[in-house]
Amino acid sequence: MDESPSAYYVHCFAHQLQLSLVAVAKENRDCVLFFQQLANLLNVLGMSCKKIRMLRVAQAEWIIKALELEEIETGKGMNQEMGLSRPGDTRWGSHHKTIMHILRMYPSIRLVLNKLVRDPTQSNEAMLAETMLTYFESFDFVFMAHLLQTIFGHTNDLSRALQKKDQDIVNAVELIHLTKIRLQLLRDDGGWETFLEEVTSYCVKHKVKVPQMGGKYKPPGRPSRFYKNLTNLHRFHVEMFLGLIDRQLRELGDRFDEVNTELLDYMGSFSPVNSFAAYDKENLVKLAHLYPLDFTEEDLMHIPYQLTHFITD
């Protein structure tokens, strides 16, 4: 910056994406509650080898039953044993994996929690398991788990792509634009109806009570005075669904702002990949204008001609 006052700094894209996910999860009240309950669940089920074994047995029994009812298919690599590893704060792909496993192991987890609640030898853990079960069996938990799985699913593809060592600038910028578009479509283009139908279908399958969207909202295991005169539709659609997606879009917009993405778009025009397929003379002229201390007015007049000679050569 001392040598070139017009220098630009672009932070690591993969790290910026992690920061945007962290900001949403730690500043959205519903996300904070969900991850607190997720930590409690992992504490209840992962405190001893006995509980881990109980979960494995329950999952194996569920798979056998589901296969008999033809609810799941057999095949190479399918129905393998899953665990509930604790997600890491700096690796948000691990949160996506943990949520996916919980949704897939939902019947087995609920069975184990019910057994712990009825176990007379585990009074302290039984109380914790009962508290956890109240939230785990609620529509709120299933709804938020599906919502985060959807958002993490869109951003996880981007995160994995940005961490590839051979990722070029053009692709990286395009992937960021694509992720924003996918989230915006989820928000506006009939995404709510499709999402609610998916969650409702899951709840019906696993015998979770689905509230009437026009009815009054009742929070599971929490004081209702904070949600007076609030309908289920407003709570789940506006506060949770739209609120979380809007916050994620805002964070992505702030972290990957127009200056950064435009700058990299222009820089991408230098890419020699596929015989300079991304070459764009106009973008490179615009790039030169971003460095007024390095190019005189006369230089800027000559650059279009020099660029023509360059690509021809």
Rank of each mutant, 00 (worst) to 15 (best):
A7M: 11
A7P: 00
C12Q: 02
F13P: 00
A14P: 04
H15F: 11
A25Y: 02
F35I: 10
Q37G: 12
Q37Y: 10
L38K: 10
N40G: 11
K51E: 03
I52V: 14
R56I: 01
V57H: 00
A58N: 04
A60Y: 03
I64P: 00
I64S: 12
A66E: 15
L67Q: 14
E70S: 14
M78S: 08
N79H: 10
M82L: 15
L84G: 05
S85E: 14
R86C: 07
G88T: 02
R91D: 05
W92K: 06
I99K: 09
L103S: 01
P107A: 10
I109G: 03
L116D: 01
L116Y: 00
P120N: 09
P120W: 09
N124W: 03
E125F: 15
E125T: 09
L128V: 05
S138D: 01
V142I: 14
V142G: 07
A145C: 05
H146F: 15
L147N: 04
Q149K: 15
G153E: 08
L158H: 03
A161R: 12
A161E: 04
Q163M: 11
Q163N: 09
D166V: 13
D168T: 03
D168I: 14
V170W: 05
V170D: 03
E174W: 04
H177F: 13
T179C: 15
L183C: 08
L186T: 00
D189M: 08
W192K: 03
F195C: 07
L196K: 13
T200M: 07
Y202Q: 08
M213Q: 06
P220L: 09
G221F: 09
F226E: 07
L233K: 13
F241K: 06
F241S: 05
G243H: 02
I245L: 13
I245N: 03
I245Q: 06
Q248N: 10
R250V: 00
G253M: 11
R255D: 02
D257Q: 02
V259H: 10
S269F: 10
S271E: 11
S271A: 10
V273C: 07
E282Y: 07
L284M: 15
V285W: 05
H289E: 13
Q306G: 08
L307H: 02
I311A: 06
D313V: 11
